[in-house]
Computed example of a mutant assay.
Amino acid sequence: MRAVGLKRYLPIEHEESFLDVELEKPKPVGRDLLVKVMAVSVNPVDTKQRAPKDDVEEEPRVLGWDASGIVEAVGEDCIDFRVGDEVYYAGSITRSGSYSEYQLVDERIVGQKPRTLDFAKAAALPLTTITAWEGLFERLAIDPAQREQNKDKHLLIIGGAGGVGSIAIQLAKWAGLKVTATASREETSTWVRKLGADAVVNHHHSLEEQLSEEVDYIFCLSNTDQHWDAMATIIKPQGKICSIVENKDPLDLNVLKSKSATFVWEFMFTRAMYETSDMRKQQELLNQVSHLIEEGHLQTTLTETLHPIEAKTIKQAHQMVESGSMIGKVVVDGF
């Protein structure tokens, strides 16, 4: 099968940062699905995994953790999917990725693709949707069923125009919250307002000075170190902070003590990486999101589409993500 892989970890501009390769088509066993990949999305985790280092792979390594496609075959223990089903998923960081014609993925982290979306629009969603859903409704413990009570709750999303922020704004508004999102450019401010943000502040300026009140929840999607002190100041007593961005410097948790405030990490690969007992929750949430999209409550966050899936276009997509100026998501579709 055709795939896009790497053997060395090189700057994206290097001619061998990605290679077009031929690999053996895998066979599903157990609860694995063999999916014929129709479209893939590129996320910051892809660029971090490819970041330059001295490691050399004996066999080409295939990256990619967002895909949509068609079930080609199923393992003997599969119970949720059949051959021909259209699916979308984010896969596991411990397994071979989605930059390939066919991919194996555990059915417990796979959802039924929204019927109203094509493969490219669907591929833009899984990783960011799982991250946003888990961050809001599990780590921050916001109950989306309590929409009336949530109207009195205020959420700050730091980094609102990126992939996770773009879906988090929509999910938070569906759950009834007041949402303030950060954006620093006119086009990103317009984008987050279009998605439903009630207010916009600039994360390059003092958040404390721009916000008129403390907030109940903070979802940090950009530079935890930079915003740590500000978050500690603007979180309400007994409020909750969740971040998806690893810190470089030690975080002083003492600044949260007097407020009895909560800080928690969100890493959407945790369930698949450790095969947790509740791993199937990712399938369930992806299926629920499919229904929300089909009912018009949510929209895809796709903003750029490249074609076809090959080393050249994967390189281009990585360059776009690494630029730090992406709005929404970039997808590469079709072999």
Rank of each mutant, 00 (worst) to 15 (best):
R2W: 14
V4D: 07
P11C: 07
E13Y: 13
D20H: 04
V21L: 04
E24Q: 14
P26I: 00
L34A: 03
V35Q: 06
V37D: 06
K48W: 13
K48G: 09
P52K: 08
D54P: 11
V56Y: 12
V56M: 09
E57P: 02
P60F: 14
P60Y: 14
L63H: 05
G64S: 09
W65I: 08
W65H: 11
I79E: 14
D80G: 00
F81T: 03
V83G: 04
V87L: 01
A90I: 00
S92H: 04
I93P: 03
T94M: 13
Y99F: 15
Y102P: 06
Q103N: 12
V110K: 02
F119W: 05
K121R: 15
P126T: 14
F137G: 00
D143V: 07
K151Y: 00
K153N: 09
H154I: 06
L155F: 12
G159S: 08
G159F: 05
A161L: 06
G163E: 12
G176C: 08
K178A: 09
S184I: 00
A197R: 01
A199L: 08
V200K: 01
N202F: 02
N202Q: 01
V215H: 04
V215G: 10
Y217T: 01
I218K: 01
C220Y: 01
W228D: 12
D229T: 13
A232C: 15
A232L: 11
I234Y: 07
I235H: 07
I235P: 09
G239A: 07
G239I: 04
G239D: 11
I241Q: 08
C242Q: 06
D249E: 15
L251T: 08
L251S: 07
D252Q: 13
L256T: 05
S258R: 06
K259S: 12
T262I: 11
T262N: 08
T262S: 11
E266G: 10
R271V: 02
R271I: 01
Q282F: 02
E284N: 09
Q288A: 07
S290D: 01
S290E: 03
Q299F: 00
Q299W: 01
T300D: 12
T305K: 15
L306N: 07
H307Q: 14
I309V: 14
I309N: 03
T313A: 06
K315L: 00
E322I: 11
S323E: 04
I327P: 03
G328E: 06
V330C: 04
G334C: 10
F335Y: 15
F335G: 12
